[in-house]
């Protein structure tokens, strides 16, 4: 991910090591969190093969998936702003990202409740578990974004917190990428 961190000054060896440590740890975290998503994709095929419930509306799904993608783009803009140490823009971008995310999740749950699946169907139960797992990650990610936003606007962005504020955006982008995969898997194939 973004390796071109611009700083007012060059980092000394110790700070560079600290930054590497944070990056490394964050990468390990992402790697470990890919596992549950791989399992969710697997679960879908174990339970229902490539069957797609007719109650599922691809168009609505596409709308909120696109919203999620846009939120990933705003999150990317947030990373850029964070790297520039532009705390105002960073905070603005996280608010925008959160709002887009909320709209998308509300659409997602609306679709879920409106086309109430038989949760005891092979397809429905996998879908339910997947949505539930995604929403839990979503909430965790929101907390991260919120903390980044608060830090950016309260104490500003400096070398000590630039990575962690950026990381909350990066986790968000990771999550939206995972959703795109789940969307394709659950709505099409």
């Amino acid at each position: 991910m973004s390796s071109h961190v611009k700083s007012s000054r060059t980092l000394n060896a110790e700070e560079r090591m600290a930054l590497n440590t944070s990056r490394g740890g964050f990468t390990i975290l992402i790697a470990s969190q890919i596992v549950p998503f791989v399992m969710l994709v697997n679960l879908r095929y174990i339970l229902s093969g490539s069957y797609v419930s007719s109650g599922l509306d691809q168009a609505t799904g596409a709308v909120f998936t696109i919203l999620f993608i846009i939120s990933a783009i705003t999150a990317y803009a947030g990373i850029q702003a964070t790297n520039r140490s532009d705390s105002k823009a960073s905070a603005r971008m996280s608010v925008l990202t959160m709002v887009l995310g909320w709209i998308a999740v509300i659409m997602m749950s609306y679709q879920f409740w409106m086309h109430a699946f038989q949760t005891d169907g092979r397809f429905g139960e996998g879908y339910l578990v997947t949505i539930g797992a995604f929403v839990i990650y979503f909430i965790a990610s929101l907390v991260g974004l919120l903390s980044g936003k608060m830090r950016a606007s309260r104490v500003g962005i400096d070398d000590s917190n630039r990575f962690s504020i950026g990381a909350s955006f990066k986790f968000w982008i990771f999550l939206q990428l995972m959703w795109v995969v789940l969307y394709v898997v659950y709505y099409f194939i």
Partner: peptide, 20 residues
């Protein structure tokens, strides 16, 4: 993470309940 998701599925399996 693998076993955590397995147990979360079991938990949902019983709360909803699902016949997973």
């Amino acid at each position: 993470p693998e076993i955590q998701l397995t147990f979360v599925m079991s938990l949902v399996n019983r709360l909803v309940p699902l016949p997973l």
